[in-house]
Design a protein around this nucleic acid. Sequence first.
DNA 1: CTCGCCAAGGTGTGATCACAAAAAGGAATG
DNA 2: CATTCCTTTTTGTGATCACACCTTGGCGAG
Lengths: 216, 216
Amino acid sequence: MSLTARPVDPAPLAHDRVYRHLRSRIMHGDIAPGQALTLRGLGKEYDVSMTPARESVRRLVAEGALSMSASGRISTPLLSNERIEELAALRALIEVELASRALPRAHLALIERLQNINARVGEAVAQRDAVSYIRTNLEFHRTLYLRAQAPAMLAMAETVWLQMGPTMNALYGRLRRTEPPQFHRLIIAALRAGDEPGLRLAVRSDVTQGLRMLAS
Amino acid sequence: MSLTARPVDPAPLAHDRVYRHLRSRIMHGDIAPGQALTLRGLGKEYDVSMTPARESVRRLVAEGALSMSASGRISTPLLSNERIEELAALRALIEVELASRALPRAHLALIERLQNINARVGEAVAQRDAVSYIRTNLEFHRTLYLRAQAPAMLAMAETVWLQMGPTMNALYGRLRRTEPPQFHRLIIAALRAGDEPGLRLAVRSDVTQGLRMLAS
DNA sequence: CTCGCCAAGGTGTGATCACAAAAAGGAATG
DNA sequence: CATTCCTTTTTGTGATCACACCTTGGCGAG
């Protein structure tokens, strides 16, 4: 057995490559809500046949990242305000629990890493770059939640992020603030202090903050 | 336009039929954990080609109802105790919220319907029929949660049920009780009284009760 | 009897094609 | 100018096939 290289990249499966790339684009708000996609178009874009394109689309539809009309047409979902409220409530429920479980394992190295990420969030906000903002913001949350050692919960949270992706871009496009997210600082402070109630409140506030933009 | 018939069943799509039937079997514990499946076998069983079988399997894998090995082999998932604990915690989080949202809309007709379903749960327990027990038990919960008017949350809860399906059967197979579920009565009583804290506690207890069987 | 090897069958993957249905475009009619 | 109808194009669905890989069963060497 070779010791110099990893077991070898076993399978750069076409459908998985398409799935991962599309998923990332959707989650980070790179595709507008309601945007239509076609299997042949995706196949052309990723240089594969319809078969892997179909599989990746089917997978994303199952996760709520894409929606299909009755006739099978594919598009990113257009979320109603009620559904956005639901998804935000789910984020609050799941992510507060994840943060709470991560708290006892959050050492100094993690907190410093969160501060570095938060600095990048601030840069993205200053540059009005919605996609970068969404990406670094989610990286902040994921870095914290990874410490919870709860993969099923984290997967659920990511599924919610995925469903909100296209809409988030449209929402943050209206955002005119230039200051970095205030609640991230509260999260970091609560982590330092080992303050569990404070952490729960800070995460809940951060997650539901975006809802206020709907009233504009 | 015809008034006697519905717009016509537009598409008994093969992959959707396979998906629905498989999903139901998995959610209700009709398939043992770790059971292997093959695309050609499923195609033969449902009298379709590999293509629809693949699509339905891909969808179920995306929902966590099936798992794939690194080489692409398909089987129902074998859950570790840690994952079972996580899924139970997710059920507690989401279903308590759903019940709480359903409470203000729960009228007498709904409560009576829940009592009828609960009677059927009791019969299934008395007959030691694990699949019937799981099916009627989930019907009890779904009937309540439908009143919450929160489709995204309900979908999340069903995804968790789906992931636990095969394992639930194995778990309830050990069950030797003959009395109907005690917490369902508490849920109904709390609904009658409009007692929100009591309802939350009853749902949480009912959902996490199964965990105690792991210690046996 | 145990272990290793090798061949045969089984399995998922991806490409291609025929088909039906839906959308799009344009011409003719009011 | 709007509307209806028809043709053309586009789109998703499902079947089939070739291919590479894994798994497994059996055989033979030690």
